[in-house]
Design a protein around this nucleic acid. Sequence first.
DNA 1: AAATGGTTCAACCGCACAATG
DNA 2: CCATTGTGCGGTTGAACCATT
Length: 286
Amino acid sequence: MDHFGLRREASIDSNDTKGDENNSNLDLKRGSWTVEEDFTLMNHVAVHGEGRWNSLARSAGLKRTGKSCRLRWLNYLRPDVRRGNITLEEQLLILQLHSRWGNRWSKIAQHLPGRTDNEIKNYWRTRVQKQAKQLKCDVNSKEFKDTLNYLWIPRLVERIQASYNSNNQVNIQQTNDNIISNNNILPNYSSTTTTTSSENSIVTQISDMSDNCYTNYPLNQGDYGEILISPTGDYFQQGALDFRTVDIINDNNNDQQNMSQLFLDDHVSDNLWNIDDLLFLQQQLN
DNA sequence: AAATGGTTCAACCGCACAATG
DNA sequence: CCATTGTGCGGTTGAACCATT
């Protein structure tokens, strides 16, 4: 695919004009945006600002609905939009926040700077749901949620740490506390500070994002020994997972605090669900 | 090389809600 | 209130891309 998303031919046949401008359907263009259209839209937004998309489309001479202009701007043309290469940290956040909020894509996107709800939604559908399908369980099932919370998220944390360790950039605080709340299976990452003075400085703050939850992550095997019992009372034997608390801050009323600078380095980009992970998962479940 | 099937993701769709007059 | 218009959201679609046969 090219970098302008020019993948679709225009198909002028729809009745999606409810709530849109007075443009005649016959004049409306649909499908992929051309470079010229993008340029026109960008210039117009630069001069007149965002909003009033219907009138903007008219005054710019774009034969597009206001909706289409808004979507193109927000998902593609906006200067700060980030596309592709969902980092491990972003994957972690998506899994966490989806666990908490479900398909509230725009709300989740608010915590991933530069990412759009559309991209997160696509990520979830194409990657996460696909894995649920491969595991032959429903994405909303307890089994899959437990798999996420007790295997995949910890595995992600492990990989993130490994990635940072490889760059001598980790300072994940370790505590001996394991805090378990029975009414929330969402892990709690908070105040994990990663700093370095190198020129490739990474300053990471993962602030609290959960209301009231426990914080267990298997960062190294052998840290803890006993059988782990999930809140739902299932599996997780010794050796399968060992947990280290990252940190905890409970601030239930401030979800959006200090989420900046969480996604700084694409070198840790990776797919969450690779072959190693699947093998790892199968081993744990056998 | 061609056919086929699976995957990705930009764009569309329909609906709900807010703002405005 | 009510109607109209604008905006935002989550679900869905389908063309382009990619891998396999």
